[in-house]
Amino acid sequence: MNISTDRWTPWLLSLLRIIAALLFWEHGLMKLFHFPAAQPQAPDPLSLMLLVAAVMETVLGFLLVIGLFTRASAFMCSGLMAFAYFIAHAPRSFWPALNGGDDAVLFCFIFLFLAAAGGGILSVDSVLAKRRGSMTNFR
């Protein structure tokens, strides 16, 4: 039996977007609303830089969860994670496993991929593209 991966690609792309976005969104919610708990080691009150990052994580994370403005949102999230890595993690050590930056690196490159690939079939972008008769943002 030959299973074509092309058939599953848009669905798996959506699954990657949704799971990564939920994890990312959680960081913003933890900083802003202490939900599901307070962000470990985050100062209270947040500095202006952390407040801006938390708002971006919350708003852009939600947009990515539903798949609205996926490419632009993912591109901004990728940049935010690159900035976070070089500001907060890289000064501690060269190695991400030692500087606590594994998450930032993975988020950065997952979001960069999503900025190029789009949100997949289970996204608001896909629904809007179908309504416009264009399938370019679908995949």
Results as ranks from 00 to 15, higher is better:
Asp44Arg: 01
Ala42Phe: 03
Ala72Arg: 11
Leu48Ala: 04
Leu68Arg: 08
Thr58Met: 08
Val65Thr: 11
Ser73Glu: 08
Leu48Cys: 05
Ile3Pro: 07
Val124Gln: 02
Ala74Thr: 06
Gly28Leu: 04
Met49Gly: 07
Val105Pro: 04
Ala88Pro: 07
Gly118Phe: 08
Phe111Gly: 01
Thr70Tyr: 12
Pro91Phe: 06
Val127Trp: 15
Ala115Asn: 09
Phe75Met: 15
Asp102Tyr: 07
Ala117Cys: 01
Ser14Met: 05
Ala97Lys: 10
Phe107Pro: 03
Arg7Cys: 12
Glu57Asn: 00
Phe62Trp: 12
Met56Ser: 07
Leu64Phe: 05
Cys77Asp: 01
Val124Gly: 09
Phe111Asn: 05
Arg131Ile: 02
Arg17His: 06
Met56Thr: 01
His27Trp: 05
Ala129Trp: 05
Pro40Cys: 02
Phe62Pro: 01
Trp95Asp: 14
Lys130Arg: 15
Ser78Tyr: 00
Leu112Phe: 15
Ala37Glu: 08
Arg92Ile: 10
Val52Asp: 01
Cys108Ile: 09
Trp95Asn: 14
Thr58Gly: 02
Asp103Pro: 02
Leu50Arg: 04
Leu23Ala: 12
Ile66Val: 13
Phe83Arg: 05
Val124Arg: 08
Val55Tyr: 00
Gly119Phe: 02
Gly100Met: 07
Ser78Ile: 00
Asp125Phe: 05
Ala21Tyr: 09
Phe33Trp: 11
Ile19Leu: 07
Trp8Thr: 09
Ile3Gln: 03
Ala42Met: 04
Val127Phe: 15
Gly100Ala: 05
Gly101Pro: 09
Met81Arg: 03
Leu51Lys: 01
Phe62Leu: 15
Thr136Gln: 14
Leu50Gln: 02
Thr9Val: 12
Ala20Gln: 11
Ile66Thr: 08
Arg139Glu: 14
His89Leu: 10
Ala90Met: 10
Trp11Ile: 13
Ile87Asp: 14
Ala116Thr: 13
Phe86Tyr: 10
Ile87Lys: 13
Arg7Thr: 14
Glu26Ser: 11
His89Pro: 02
Ile18Ala: 08
Met56Arg: 00
Pro91Glu: 08
Arg139Trp: 12
Phe69Leu: 14
Phe113Glu: 01
Phe35Glu: 01
Val65Asn: 06
Ser134Glu: 14
Leu80Glu: 07
Gly120His: 09
Glu26Gln: 15
Arg132Ser: 14
Ile87Cys: 09
Pro45Glu: 01
Gly133Ser: 07
Ile110Tyr: 08
Ala117Gly: 03
Trp25Glu: 01
Ser126Asp: 12
Leu50Trp: 04
Thr136Phe: 06
Thr70Lys: 12
Leu32Ser: 00
Phe62Met: 14
Pro10Trp: 07
Ala84Phe: 00
Leu80Ile: 07
Val65Ile: 15
Asn137Leu: 10
Thr70Leu: 02
Leu46Tyr: 07
Tyr85Val: 08
Leu106Arg: 11
Cys77Trp: 03
Val127Thr: 15
Leu23Glu: 10
Arg92Leu: 13
Cys108Glu: 06
Ser73Lys: 00
Phe107Asn: 12
Cys108Thr: 09
Leu68Lys: 05
Arg92Tyr: 07
Leu51Met: 10
Ala42Cys: 05
Leu48Thr: 06
